[in-house]
């Protein structure tokens, strides 16, 4: 990558137009990119398919501290990191709220207003919004921070260690708590329990179950729709958790592949040179959009489900 960026410097042309300068720079970069790949392929060639490397093992959870069912592994570490990042940043900002905000405070205020006015306020009535705001806002922030922490390379890969002056340091890797199904599943379960509880509280157990069938549907069709709606409620549990888990896992996997895993598996070193720019682009895309978007979707769906559970007409 350093070769690519150093080659992007213009070679002292006599004051060309900016657009042609940019075009030339891009052409040089593309030339270095493709040329570098050819050179690397010629030098190193193909080492044959590597069957020992299993990319999924990057996500394997080895217990580091054995405490029975509460054993601490990589996912627990990332959970704690996400919680610490969420609490520390929010409490730090909250304690230093100024009447004339700086940029960070403005960003946090915008985030808070998004959670309060759009996600919660837009889907729930005032009373419900006030009651459920802490839950929905924590979901949003916790998932977002968890996703973002997952894009920081940390020395957590205990399967592959680097020898630094005799010290065996785990190699740096990307991992996210939300890339493990257990974590989104628990959050989705909390959502499921919350909206079911709210629905039952608002309408009573019978009323809530009756509310699953749309008004006007009677007889056999009502039974069929009831079954379908009941199933769809459990499907929400699946869709909420799998959407988040699969998005983050897929994002990490594709970054992993573009950052070199593909080259390792296929045994073609030159391929890593080719895929690394895509890896960088995907990394930026995941950090800039997917991390916050998935948190937003999860929190918004939670608010919608809660609002739907207490609504008069289902």
């Amino acid at each position: 990558m350093s070769a690519v960026s150093s080659s992007s410097a213009p070679a002292g042309a006599p004051a060309p137009a900016p657009s042609s300068n940019l075009k030339r720079t891009l052409l040089i970069m593309a030339g270095v990119w493709i040329g570098g790949m050819i050179v690397l392929f010629v030098i190193f060639g193909s080492g044959g398919r590597n069957s020992t490397y299993q990319p999924q093992n990057e996500f394997k959870l080895d217990n580091w501290v054995h405490l029975g069912v509460f054993s601490i592994n990589k996912a627990v570490l990332y959970l704690l990191l996400a919680a610490i990042a969420t609490c520390a940043s929010m409490i730090y900002i909250a304690k230093r709220m100024q009447s004339r905000p700086n940029k960070v405070q403005t960003a946090v205020e915008m985030l808070y207003q998004l959670m309060r006015d759009n996600i919660t306020g837009g889907n729930l009535d005032e009373k419900m919004a006030k009651r459920w705001f802490p839950f929905i806002a924590t979901l949003f922030l916790f998932i977002m921070f968890s996703n973002l922490v997952g894009y920081i390379p940390l020395p957590t890969n205990t399967e592959h260690k680097i020898d630094v002056l005799g010290l065996h340091i785990p190699s740096f890797s990307l991992y996210a708590a939300t890339a493990n199904l257990s974590i989104p599943l628990v959050l989705a379960l909390l959502v499921f329990i919350s909206y079911t509880f709210e629905g039952i509280r608002a309408k009573g157990p019978i009323g809530y179950l009756k509310g699953l069938v749309p008004g006007g549907v009677t007889g056999g069709m009502a039974v069929f729709i009831f079954g379908l709606e009941l199933l769809s409620n459990f499907m929400r549990l699946m869709s909420l958790s799998i959407r988040l888990f699969a998005n983050i896992l897929a994002g990490h996997l594709i970054i992993l592949f573009m950052a070199g895993a593909l080259a390792v598996i296929l045994g073609v070193s030159a391929l890593a040179w080719f895929t690394i720019p895509f890896g960088i682009l995907l990394f930026a895309f995941e950090v800039g959009l997917v991390a916050a978007l998935q948190a937003f979707i999860f929190a918004t769906l939670t608010a919608i489900y809660l609002g739907g559970a207490v609504a008069e007409d289902h």
Binding site: L61, G68, V69, N180
Partner: peptide, 8 residues
């Protein structure tokens, strides 16, 4: 994993 779920 049940342990991770409880941790969560």
């Amino acid at each position: 994993g049940i342990g991770l779920m409880i941790w969560t």
